[in-house]
Computed example of a mutant assay.
Amino acid sequence: MTTSAEWDLEVRPHLTPYFAYGAAFLIAAAHIAVGFLLKVGSSGVIFQTSDQVGIGTLGVIIACVVLLFARPRLRVGPSGIAVRNLLAYRLIPWSDVVDVSFSDGARWARVDLPDDEYIPAMAIQAVDKQRAVDSMDRVRELMQRYRSDVS
């Protein structure tokens, strides 16, 4: 893996991680609370301790999945553009980058590749408004710097 000194720009979403952390906490807390309260009272169903543990564990697993939304990152440097989304990480060399765009109505930017393919860049999100605009401007500046064939 490369060090951060090799990258000229690193972009992360600004607002989405706050929502992800809050939602993950609420989901885990609700499942754990339900797990604790499962044996309180009588509903006609007999719950075991394993049921309580299972519900709490399910909440923690769902919270971990929600936390993946705090993970996106985009890095730009001499070696290309590195995109990390929810699950995947990909380093795209400058020779494969056609453009970096933000379509009208899109939720996040994308790195356009040859043959009409693209990779979503979830690190630059529309909900971040001016930060997204500034990030796109900076990415395009660096693209001009590293790609001499870009007009």
Score class of each variant (00 low, 15 high):
Ser103Ala: 14
Thr3Lys: 13
Ile62Tyr: 02
Tyr21Ala: 05
Met1Leu: 10
Val53Phe: 06
Ala106Pro: 05
Met136Thr: 09
Asp116Cys: 12
Thr16Lys: 06
Ser151Cys: 09
Ala20His: 07
Arg73Gln: 07
Pro120His: 04
Ala33Thr: 15
Pro72Tyr: 01
Leu91Ala: 08
Asp116Asn: 14
Ile119Gln: 02
Thr3Asp: 15
Ser42Glu: 05
Leu91Arg: 10
Leu26Met: 11
Pro72Arg: 01
Glu6His: 12
Gly77Thr: 02
Ile27Cys: 04
Ser148Phe: 12
Val139His: 07
Ala132Gln: 01
Ala33Ser: 15
Gln48Leu: 10
Val139Cys: 09
Leu87Ile: 10
Val40Ala: 10
Ala33Trp: 12
His14Gly: 05
Ser101Lys: 07
Met1Ser: 14
Asp112Gly: 05
Asp149Arg: 08
Asp115Lys: 12
Val53Trp: 08
Asp104Trp: 11
Leu74Glu: 00
Ser50Val: 11
Tyr146Arg: 08
Ile27Val: 15
Pro72Asp: 01
Leu87Arg: 05
Val65Cys: 06
Asn85Asp: 02
Gln130Leu: 09
Val66Glu: 02
Glu117Cys: 10
Gln125Ala: 11
Val133Ser: 12
Ser43Glu: 04
Ser151Met: 09
Ala28Glu: 01
Arg147Lys: 15
Gly80Pro: 03
Met143Ser: 12
Met1Val: 10
Phe36Ile: 11
Asp104Cys: 05
Tyr18Arg: 15
Gln48Cys: 00
Tyr89Met: 09
Asp51Arg: 02
Leu67Val: 02
Ala23Gly: 07
Met136Ile: 12
